[in-house]
C-alpha cells in the first residue's frame, strides 16, 4: 500500500458514460490483477475505489463508469492534471490455480479488472476464454482489447442488440478448467449457480478507508467475516455466503 501523486496522461470516453484514464506515477505496489486503487478527489470526503485495468512500468490504467459526483468529477479531468492515489489495495486474483484453460466472465463495469488478469494468464501460456456481458450494443467496451491479446472472446447483450442475446451465463463455453468473474451481484449469483468448476469472484461494497481499518465493508464467509477491501475483493467460490 502506498499513497502518491499520479499525473493524468489520457482520459477518454469509451461509451456514453464509461471512461478510460491513464495515470503516470509509482505503480510499484500494484502487483496482482484484481487489486484496486483508491482515489482522492477535491471537495469529496471519501476516496473512490476503482479496479486496476492495466499497468506497465510507469502507468496505471483504470476504466470507470460515471455513477455520481466523484466519477463525474473524474470524467471532467484532462491530461496533465494530478490525482492522489492509494495503490496496492486488496488481495487480487490468484492465477496459479487456473489450470490450462481459464474462463473470464465480466459484466459491465466489472469487465476492466479482467484485462490485466487475461494478460497475465496469456503470458503464462494458458488458453483464455472471455465472456463479456452488457445491457445493450452501445454499452460494449474492451472487446477488441481482449481479442488483441489472444483471448477467445464472446460478447452477450441482455437485449440481443450485439453478440449473443442474454447474460454471460447464456454464453459459457463447454469446457474450461477454472473461472474468474467480476460484475454486478445478480450476475455473480448466476455465475455461482451455472459454473461447473471452482472459481474466484470479485465483489464490490461501499468502503470507508479501502485498507482494512474501518470495518465498513465486512461480509460473512464460510471461514468467518472478511473485509472486502483488505481480505477481498476476491473471494473463492467455496467460501462465499450470499446475503439472504
Amino acid at each position: 500500500m502506498k499513497v502518491s501523486m499520479f499525473t493524468i496522461r489520457e482520459n477518454t470516453a469509451l461509451t456514453k458514460n464509461v471512461y478510460r484514464m491513464v495515470l503516470e506515477g509509482d505503480v510499484s505496489e500494484i502487483t496482482r490483477p484484481g487489486t484496486f486503487v483508491n482515489i482522492r478527489l477535491s471537495g469529496l470526503y471519501l476516496r473512490r475505489p476503482i479496479s486496476v485495468n492495466d499497468t506497465d512500468e510507469t502507468t496505471l490504467t483504470i476504466i470507470y463508469k460515471v455513477v455520481g459526483k466523484g466519477t463525474g468529477q473524474m470524467a471532467a479531468m484532462t491530461a496533465g492534471e494530478e490525482l492522489e492515489v492509494m495503490t496496492g489495495l486488496g488481495n487480487g486474483y490468484d492465477t496459479a490455480v487456473s489450470g490450462d484453460h481459464p474462463l473470464l466472465l465480466g459484466g459491465g463495469v466489472g469487465v476492466p479488472p479482467l484485462y490485466k488478469l487475461a494478460k497475465e494468464l496469456i503470458a503464462q501460456g494458458k488458453k483464455v476464454s472471455v465472456v463479456l456481458g452488457f445491457n445493450t450494443a452501445d454499452e460494449v467496451f474492451c472487446e477488441e482489447e481482449f481479442k488483441a491479446i489472444g483471448c477467445d472472446t464472446v460478447v452477450a447483450t441482455a437485449d440481443g442488440s450485439y453478440g449473443v442475446k442474454g447474460f454471460v451465463t447464456d454464453a459459457l463455453p463447454e469446457e474450461y478448467t477454472y473461472f474468474y468473474t467480476c460484475g454486478p451481484e445478480p450476475m455473480l449469483k448466476a455465475v455461482y449457480k451455472t459454473t461447473t468448476t471452482s472459481g474466484q469472484f470479485s465483489f464490490e461494497e461501499r468502503m470507508g478507508c479501502g485498507f482494512g481499518a474501518c470495518m465498513g465493508c465486512s461480509c460473512h464467509t464460510v471461514t468467518g467475516y472478511k473485509r472486502i477491501c483488505k481480505d477481498g475483493p476476491v473471494l473463492v467460490k467455496e467460501e462465499i455466503l450470499w446475503n439472504a
Binding site: 470526503y45 471519501l46 461494497e205 470507508g208 465498513g216 465493508c217 465486512s218 467475516y225
Partner: peptide, 23 residues
Amino acid sequence: RFGNPTPRIAECTSGMINAVGLQ
C-alpha cells in the same frame, strides 16, 4: 460481534456516516 449489515458507510459534505456496529 459481526456488527451491522452493509452498506455501513455513507459520504457527507466534509464527513461521513458509519454504522459498523462494534464489529
